[in-house]
Nucleic acid binder design. Sequence first.
DNA 1: GGGCCGGTAGTCAAATTTGGCTAGCTCTCT
DNA 2: AGAGAGCTAGCCAAATTTGACTACCGGCCC
Lengths: 213, 213
Amino acid sequence: MSAIRLLVLGAVRQHGRAHGYQVRNDLEYWGAHEWSNAKPGSIYHALKQMAKQGLLLAHEIAPSTAGGPPRVEYEITEQGTEEYLALLRDYLTAYDQRPDVLTAALGFMVDLPREEALALLEERVRKIEEWRASVTEYYMPAEGPGQYGHIGEIMNYWVHSADSGAEWTRGLIERVRGGAYTFAGEGEPFVGVLAEGEENPFAAGRPHYGDAR
Amino acid sequence: MSAIRLLVLGAVRQHGRAHGYQVRNDLEYWGAHEWSNAKPGSIYHALKQMAKQGLLLAHEIAPSTAGGPPRVEYEITEQGTEEYLALLRDYLTAYDQRPDVLTAALGFMVDLPREEALALLEERVRKIEEWRASVTEYYMPAEGPGQYGHIGEIMNYWVHSADSGAEWTRGLIERVRGGAYTFAGEGEPFVGVLAEGEENPFAAGRPHYGDAR
DNA sequence: GGGCCGGTAGTCAAATTTGGCTAGCTCTCT
DNA sequence: AGAGAGCTAGCCAAATTTGACTACCGGCCC
């Protein structure tokens, strides 16, 4: 799975009620078009699909005042909220090496209580360590390393990445345990959406890091 | 782009002439079904598509001795070889955070001369550093960090990953410069395909790291 | 001597993703 | 006043990816 469902559900949820273009703007504000596959086509597709599956409720709305075709507003359903939280928990703990998944989950982690977020992050570290152990067991056999030739570099790279990811996660755990950020039930949450009329400092089309490659 | 085209082209090239099932087996031998999207459907699709585009040449073959449907054998064309090398060079230098792309390229890097591989890897490091500079410039503005709340952790994660990736690449450069592995034109290459009848120690279905998540 | 497991070699529909396209409106410049 | 740029809002075809399914054969077990 990609991160798009979590992103779209999270965006709709923060708005209460949103149409596709708003979601698209939020994701762009978060820079998601640069670190995930959040392109217009994918966003609208995800909205429709999730509406069909009952995760979102679609309301047909008359053409807006500012031109453009008739639009559809979406609300998250009970079932959609469950899916949202399930994805969030899953992506915080899953070590699947795709940075977009973790990144999306980081953006929403404060929707969980602090203690739960900490538990999930600790589980994440545990999973990375397990993964590392299983890889080194299978790919560093008794015959010693080197028998794979340059292919051994692949394993070396994986292990290095895993170690680096675990280390970073431990740092995050410490910061969160030390009281950083505002989690669910701790008062005014940090707002990550644009207010009506506010301008987006990170609009697409800027000469960004996304241009690396 | 995903890594599948490079993987399939590389597999066909190593065989000289291969049918889909052989490619599928090679990729499985390399563990590619665990770190990339190399599933049967994707492999056969890529073969057909690249044959249509002239990167591969397809030969219809009579049903094999061992049952099953009539099969198709593929050979890489001149154009396919060019595309293969272009992808390889691109993936070795591109910092696009998707580990499958780099992993695939690492598996084939010895198809290039040692000096070229070194140059590409150095370019890779340069690109990562550029990327890092551009990110920190845009996302650590004058108002100081912390104004993004927990969203700042996302940038922190990216930067950490970039640094880790650059460091690893520098290590690889040193090993290669020090004479490790056998590159193009340096004698008998390391064989990464199964010989006829050899058994695959990494067959699918084993309890691997891929089961993390 | 029938059943079924595993290997060979793939196909197929459905879901997703990509990249570009449309169409109406407003604002600015000339 | 008209051209054109830019914003709002979203659609679409084509390509890709997923996950499950097919069909055939040989051998093993009972």
